[in-house]
């Protein structure tokens, strides 16, 4: 405003005023744009600060963590924290366990969900709609509620303190993933399936040769959901495993943190070990993840 009135005063003439008004809107627009970037960058900075500080700390010896503020970068590429975590704090085992359990959970969950979704989307049998409703209703049940009975089931089945206990409840497909895949499978043109059937293809063949290849985006989404869930899962593995041999990164890290006596360097390096694989996954699939979050929930 003040710039434009100044300009008007200096130029005086009509054309000058018009030109200055144009500059004024331009200035206002640039100002808005600058404000947008300043604010957004500030927020983004707040979002990234915890990661940045942790990365710094993971490469510092404990003495530097105690003597300098967290935002001082490490003096050198000090790797001892990671070496210690992997060799003496059990993180090698936790990492391997987490990889194994997450892989088993993901493969089973996606495969069985594909089968179930196909039945609901493309087959017709008595009670189908009723069973599907039953599945949808279970979506409302929070996981915390089933923890106690599930624990007793696992105990009676003598599965406590096994890898089985950690992934068994999630490996047969989840109602949500089935729901998600079913929505996708339903939109595959019937003609393509009819054509395959005319050629004598069985249901399995139709599913895995036609529907699955055409549903790649939905299946990738289902896979990512399972991977992230398996990797981050905490309460359930905490309950069903007692020995360090079966700890995952989450349970191992929480256990380490509660016994650590201010060994922040090791705990924070442990957090980095836990977060890095997910970070890689996120960077590789960021577009897909962001798109699928908004598409799968709000359709």
């Amino acid at each position: 405003m003040s710039i434009s009135s100044l300009a008007v005063g200096a130029a005086g003439s009509r054309t000058g005023a018009a030109r200055s008004r144009a500059t004024a809107t331009k200035v206002a627009r640039v100002g808005k744009l600058v404000m947008f970037y300043v604010i957004m960058t500030a927020i983004a900075f707040v979002f990234m600060v915890p990661y940045l500080l942790t990365l710094f700390a993971a490469f510092k010896p404990i003495s530097q963590i105690f003597s300098q503020p967290a935002w001082y970068p490490p003096h050198s590429l000090y790797l001892h924290n990671f070496v210690y975590d992997f060799s003496s704090a059990g993180f090698a085992r936790y990492l391997a366990n987490t990889f194994f359990v997450t892989a088993a959970l993901t493969v089973g969950q996606v495969f069985f969900s594909i089968l179930g979704a196909f039945a609901f989307a493309r087959l017709s049998f008595p009670g189908r709609d009723l069973i599907f409703w039953l599945f949808l209703i279970t979506l409302m049940v929070p996981s915390a509620v089933t923890v106690i009975p599930l624990y007793t089931i696992m105990k009676e089945a003598h599965l406590l303190n096994t890898y089985w206990a950690i992934f068994l409840p999630y490996v047969f497909g989840t109602p949500y993933t089935i729901f998600l895949l079913r929505q996708f499978f339903r939109h595959i043109p019937q003609e393509m399936i009819d054509a395959a059937r005319v050629d004598g293809a069985s249901d399995m063949r139709v599913l895995f040769r036609i529907i699955v290849p055409l549903s790649r985006p939905a299946i990738i989404t289902a896979t990512l959901i399972a991977l992230v869930f398996g990797w981050n899962n905490f309460l359930w593995p905490l309950i069903v495993t007692e020995s360090q041999n079966h700890y995952l990164l989450t349970t191992g890290l929480a256990n380490f943190q509660s016994n650590m006596n201010s060994q922040w360097n090791y705990a924070l390096a442990g957090s980095v070990i836990t977060l890095v694989p997910l970070a890689i996954l996120f960077i590789v699939f960021q577009k897909h993840i962001i798109r699928s979050i908004s598409i799968t929930q709000i359709r």
């Binding site: 049998f125 039953l134 089933t146 599930l150 497909g173």
Partner: peptide, 26 residues
């Protein structure tokens, strides 16, 4: 048609019944 659907339906139905519905009742 139900028998036909069983191979597809059984695993997830088993999962939902054993690990979700029965626990809620339990």
């Amino acid at each position: 048609s139900f028998v036909h659907a069983l191979p597809f339906l059984t695993p997830s139905l088993f999962g939902v019944v054993v690990f979700l519905l029965i626990p809620v009742v339990l």
